[in-house]
Simulated scan of single mutants.
Amino acid sequence: MRSSDLSASELQPRRLHLLYHELRESESEYSYIVTTQQFAGHLALLCADESVQAGPRPEFTFDDGHISDFEHALPLLSEQRVKASFFITAGWTGSRTGYMGWSELRALQEAGHSIGAHGWSHALLPHCSDVELDQELRVARLVLEDRLGSAIDSMSFPGGRYDKRVLKACHQAGYTRLYTSEPRTHLSGGVIGRVNVRGSMTNTYLQKLFDERSGALTSLERQYVLKAFLQKLLGDRFYASLWSMINRKQPDADAVSKA
């Protein structure tokens, strides 16, 4: 990772929400992998002395429930005394290789971090039947609450996908905070947008996202609009194959739901 060109005091932060998927100690061609060194740099940069910040700290969020949340993110977050939100694919917990079990989730919870839902099987919610939506939303929440012993009121949409029907189902299932991957601070319907952090993003680039004069966030928003257009034009399965190729990841059984 290249060193920062600006000091923390030159940041002009907004309440952006950052989205991570997996941390690794070494670099990867897969664009969703962020190294532990990069993440430590992000924390140091964006969580410096609050007296030099022009606004609130960003919210750090993690989707899927990968084991690296516990092994790598937790120690680094603890060093900076930063709390994060972890959105868990409930059906993968304790049953899927490379993902956390219930003991790891409880450790995150006991450290003061927030646990939210990310569906049951990571299915794209707009494609679900009413029965499937119930499994992905209500059942996932109830299982998380039962195993963790606390209320679950936040939900991150798998693939960032939702529509009016999904929003209604989420509210009926008991969720009050809803997150997507659209890079905006606020969206209609009370949905919270997030910036999807990629391994190619340097500290300098992150600083630009917090500077309204740079236009970096506006550029990301335009890219997202183009991505959404391509998703609709190509269809999810073909788009997922294209996405996997562009992002250096071989298509697998979950490619459609992860794109």
Rank of each mutant, 00 (worst) to 15 (best):
S3I: 07
S9Q: 09
E10T: 12
L11A: 06
Q12S: 11
Q12R: 14
R14I: 12
R14D: 05
L16Q: 04
H17M: 05
L19D: 02
L19P: 01
Y20V: 06
H21F: 02
E22P: 00
E25I: 08
E27L: 06
E29K: 15
Y30D: 10
I33A: 08
T35A: 03
Q38L: 06
Q38D: 03
Q38Y: 03
G41P: 04
G41T: 05
L46C: 03
A48T: 06
E50S: 09
E50A: 09
S51V: 01
S51H: 12
V52F: 03
Q53Y: 01
A54S: 08
G55F: 02
R57I: 00
P58E: 01
I67Q: 10
D69P: 02
F70L: 10
E71H: 05
E71C: 01
L74A: 04
L76I: 04
E79S: 06
Q80H: 00
V82K: 01
F86M: 10
F86L: 11
F87D: 05
A90C: 11
G91M: 07
R96G: 01
R96I: 09
M100H: 01
M100N: 07
A107C: 03
E110W: 03
A111V: 04
G112I: 07
G112N: 04
S114R: 12
A117I: 10
G119N: 03
C128M: 06
S129F: 00
E132Y: 02
Q135W: 12
E136Q: 12
L137A: 05
L137M: 13
L137G: 06
R138H: 10
A140K: 10
A140R: 11
L142Q: 15
L144R: 10
L144K: 10
D146E: 13
R147E: 11
L148F: 08
S150P: 01
S156V: 10
S156W: 03
F157W: 11
P158H: 13
P158D: 11
G159W: 08
G160L: 14
L167V: 07
L167K: 10
K168Y: 01
A169Q: 09
C170H: 06
Q172E: 15
Q172V: 09
R177T: 13
R177P: 02
R177Y: 10
T180H: 02
T185D: 05
T185M: 14
T185H: 08
G189W: 02
G190N: 08
G193V: 12
R198C: 09
G199Q: 11
T202V: 13
T202H: 10
R213E: 14
T218P: 00
L220S: 07
L220W: 05
E221A: 14
R222A: 14
R222K: 15
Q223C: 08
V225T: 13
L226P: 00
L226K: 12
A228Q: 13
F229K: 02
L230E: 04
L233E: 02
L234V: 05
G235C: 05
D236A: 14
R237V: 09
R237Y: 07
R237N: 11
A240Y: 08
A240E: 02
S241T: 06
S241D: 11
S241K: 15
L242G: 07
N247S: 13
R248K: 14
R248Q: 11
K249Q: 15
Q250A: 14
P251L: 06
A253V: 10
D254M: 13
D254T: 12
S257Y: 05
K258H: 12
K258Y: 05
A259P: 06
A259R: 10
